[in-house]
C-alpha cells in the first residue's frame, strides 16, 4: 500500500518534470507549423487558438486533471485538421487518447510477445550457464549474448531480416499490423521485431540470472543440498534459483520497461505502428500534448513495472511473506 502511494507520488513528480521540460523546449507548435516566414500576429493568433498563451500553472492543472481521466487533450496537429473539417476542437477524432490508443496497444503487444519469448529463454540460458559454468556452453552463451547487446539494434534487425525474410522467406519484412488481423497472423507479423528485441534484452537477464545463482553457490545451504546427494540441476533450480529471484525480477522489470519505452529504432526498421515512432514524430512537430502523454505513459510503465518487481520480490521471499 505504501509502495503504491510512493509510486503515485513519483508519477506526480514525473508529470511536473515532464510538463516543465516539454515547455522549456525552444520553439513551440505555432512557430513550427507556421514556418519561418510567419508574421508575429499570425503566430500570436494561432497560440491564442490553442490556449498556449495562458499561464503555465493553469495549463498544467488542466492537463493533469484530464490525464487522470485518460483525457490527454487534443493533439495540435489534429486540432488543426479537425477545425478545417468543421468539428469542434477537442472532440471526436482528434483526441490524443484516440491517437495513442491503438499505438499503445501495438507497443504492448510487441513488448508482451518479446517478453514471452525473451524471459523464459534468458532464464533457461542463465540457469544452464550457471550449471555448466566455465564450460564451452557458458562461454558461447556469454559471448553471443554480449555480442547481440553490443550491436546496434538496426544492425540486428537487418541481419534477422536477411536470414528470416530474404534468404529464407519465412517471416514478412514489414510489420504492418492492424486491429482487424487474426491473432496468429498478427503474431507472425510481429515475430521479427520481437526476435530482434529478444536479442537486445537477453544478455542482461541471462547474465543476471547466471551471476545471481553463482553468487549463491558458496552458501551453506547449497553445500547442504549437495551433501544430500541432490543432482546438480536440481541444486540450481530448486535450491539456488528461488533465492536468486529478487535481483532477476528487477532486471526483468527494467528490461520490460525498456521494451515499452525504448524501441523506436526497431519500430522504424519494421515500420511497426507503435508508440515510439509517434513519440519521435510529435517531438519533431512540437506536438506538446502528444509528447506529454507519451512521456507520462512511459513513466507510468516504468513505475508500474518496478512496483510489480518489488511485489514479486516480496512474494518470492518467505521471510518477507511470513514474518516471524
Amino acid at each position: 500500500m505504501q509502495r503504491l502511494g510512493l509510486g503515485l507520488l513519483t508519477l506526480l513528480v514525473v508529470s511536473i518534470v515532464i510538463f516543465v521540460a516539454v515547455n522549456a523546449l525552444p520553439g513551440d507548435f505555432a512557430q513550427a507549423i507556421l514556418g519561418q516566414g510567419a508574421t508575429p500576429e499570425a503566430v500570436a493568433a494561432f497560440r491564442e487558438d490553442l490556449g498556449l498563451n495562458r499561464p503555465y500553472l493553469t495549463r498544467y492543472f488542466e492537463w493533469l486533471a484530464g490525464a487522470v481521466r485518460f483525457d490527454f487533450g487534443t493533439a495540435y496537429s489534429q486540432a488543426q485538421f479537425a477545425e478545417f473539417a468543421g468539428s469542434d476542437a477537442g472532440s471526436g477524432l482528434g483526441s490524443v487518447a484516440e491517437m495513442l490508443g491503438p499505438r499503445f496497444r501495438n507497443t504492448i503487444f510487441l513488448a508482451g510477445l518479446t517478453a514471452l519469448i525473451a524471459v523464459p529463454f534468458s532464464i533457461t540460458i542463465g540457469v544452464l550457464a550457471a550449471l555448466y559454468r566455465n564450460s564451452v556452453f557458458d562461454r558461447v552463451a556469454n559471448i553471443s549474448t554480449l555480442t547481440s547487446i553490443s550491436s546496434p539494434e538496426f544492425f540486428l534487425a537487418y541481419i534477422l531480416i536477411l536470414f528470416l525474410a530474404v534468404i529464407n522467406p519465412i517471416l514478412p519484412v514489414l510489420s504492418l499490423v492492424n486491429d482487424e488481423m487474426a491473432l496468429t497472423e498478427r503474431i507472425r507479423m510481429t515475430l521479427l521485431p520481437a526476435l530482434t528485441l529478444t536479442l537486445v534484452v537477453t544478455a542482461h537477464m541471462m547474465r543476471m540470472t547466471r551471476a545471481a545463482i553463482i553468487n549463491l553457490l558458496a552458501s551453506p545451504y547449497i553445500e547442504m543440498a549437495r551433501l544430500k546427494g541432490i543432482s546438480p540441476m536440481r541444486v540450481i533450480v530448486r535450491h539456488a534459483l528461488p533465492n536468486a529471484l529478487a535481483p532477476i525480477i528487477n532486471v526483468i522489470a527494467l528490461n520490460l520497461a525498456y521494451l515499452i519505452t525504448g524501441v523506436v529504432v526497431v519500430e522504424v526498421v519494421f515500420v511497426y505502428p507503435g508508440i515510439g515512432q509517434l513519440f519521435v514524430d510529435s517531438v519533431k512537430n512540437r506536438d506538446i500534448p502528444v509528447v506529454q502523454a507519451c512521456c507520462l505513459i512511459f513513466a507510468a510503465a516504468y513505475i508500474l513495472l518496478n512496483l510489480m518487481a518489488d511485489i514479486l520480490s516480496i512474494l518470492s521471499n518467505p521471510r518477507l511473506r511470513h514474518p516471524k
Partner: peptide, 13 residues
C-alpha cells in the same frame, strides 16, 4: 551431514 549453522544450512526458500 549435519552442519554447524543450521540457520544458514537450511534453504530459506
Amino acid at each position: 551431514y549435519v552442519a554447524q549453522s543450521a540457520a544458514a544450512s537450511f534453504n530459506p526458500a
